[in-house]
C-alpha cells in the first residue's frame, strides 16, 4: 500500500470552460511539507481550492487519504474535508469571535467535549502557535502575522492529518515570516502533520519544503518537481532556474 496521503490524477482546472492547467498529477507523502510554487496568476490557489473541494475540476481525480473528494458530495465530502484543515491567505478568522471561540467553534460542532475541555484544547492550540495570552483578543486586534498563526491554530482544531496553507508568508516581514516557517517545521516534525503550502516566497520554500512542484501558466501545468535545491541547481528548464535565481527575463 502506498504511503501517499494525497494523490492528484490527470487534473484539469479552470473557469468558464477555459482551462488554467491541464492533466496535472502528483502525490504528497504522509508527513512531508509539500510546496506548490509558481508565478503570479499561474493557478496555485485555484489548484489548492480544487484540492480542498471548494472548486470542482473540469477533469481528473483528487484522493485525500484514499477517498476521492471530486466525486464525493454532501456528508461524504464533509467527512473528507474534516480530515484536513485550511489556513486561508488572509486568515479568514471569524471577525465577530475572539480567538478562543474561533478555535472552539469546530470543537463544539464536531466533538462531544464539554465547554471546559474545549477551552483547554483551544488554549493549547494557541499556545502551540505562540499565541498564549491572546485567547480573548478579537481578530481585528491582531497583526497580520498573528492572524495567520491563529488561522493555523484554528485549522488544527480537529487535529487533522493534513494542513493546507495558502500563501502563509505573503505580506509578512522577514522575521515574522521566518517565525511562521519555524512553526510549520515544528508542527510537521513534532506532530507529523502533512503540509501542502502554496507559496512563491523563495526564502521560505528553501526553509520548509521537502518537495516542490512548480506550475507555469504558459505550459498550463507542472514544469518541474523535486527538492528546491535540486530545481535551482539542476533543472533543465531555463525558466525554472531563472525563477529560483531571481533573474529578470
Amino acid at each position: 500500500m502506498s504511503s501517499d496521503l494525497i494523490r492528484v490524477e490527470n487534473l484539469t482546472v479552470g473557469f468558464g470552460g477555459k482551462s488554467l492547467m491541464k492533466d496535472v498529477g502528483f502525490t504528497v507523502a504522509a508527513g512531508e511539507v509539500f510546496v506548490i510554487l509558481g508565478g503570479s496568476g499561474c493557478g496555485k490557489s485555484t489548484l489548492l481550492k480544487n484540492m480542498i473541494g471548494l472548486y470542482r475540476p473540469m477533469a481528473g481525480r483528487i484522493f485525500i487519504a484514499g477517498e476521492d473528494i471530486v466525486q464525493a458530495t454532501g456528508d461524504g465530502k464533509r467527512a473528507i474535508q474534516r480530515k484536513f484543515g485550511v489556513a486561508y491567505q488572509a486568515g479568514a478568522l471569524f471577525g465577530s469571535m475572539n480567538l478562543i471561540d474561533n478555535i472552539g467553534l469546530p470543537l463544539e460542532e464536531y466533538t462531544g467535549l464539554d465547554a471546559a475541555a474545549r477551552e483547554l484544547t483551544a488554549r493549547m492550540k494557541l499556545s502551540l502557535v505562540g499565541l498564549a495570552g491572546f485567547e480573548q483578543r478579537m481578530p481585528a486586534e491582531l497583526s497580520g502575522g498573528m492572524q495567520k498563526r491563529a488561522a493555523i491554530a484554528r485549522a488544527m482544531a480537529l487535529d487533522p492529518a493534513i494542513l493546507f496553507l495558502d500563501e502563509p508568508s505573503a505580506g509578512l516581514d522577514p522575521i515574522t515570516s521566518a517565525g511562521l516557517d519555524e512553526l510549520i517545521l515544528r508542527l510537521a516534525r513534532n506532530l507529523g502533520i502533512t503540509f501542502v503550502v502554496v507559496s512563491h516566497e523563495l526564502q521560505s520554500i528553501f526553509t520548509i519544503a521537502d518537495r516542490v512542484i512548480m506550475l507555469d501558466k504558459r505550459q498550463q501545468g507542472i514544469v518541474a518537481a523535486g527538492t528546491p535545491a535540486d530545481l535551482r541547481d539542476n533543472s533543465p528548464n531555463p525558466w525554472v532556474r531563472q525563477f529560483f535565481n531571481r533573474e529578470a527575463p
Binding site: 470543537l107 466533538t111 467535549l113 471546559a116 475541555a117 483547554l120 484544547t121 493549547m124 492550540k125 488544527m156 482544531a157 487535529d159
Partner: peptide
C-alpha cells in the same frame, strides 16, 4: 494521542 488527548492529559 492527538491534540484532544494531550489536552485531557494536561487537564
Amino acid at each position: 494521542c492527538d491534540g484532544a488527548g494531550l489536552a485531557f492529559l494536561v487537564d
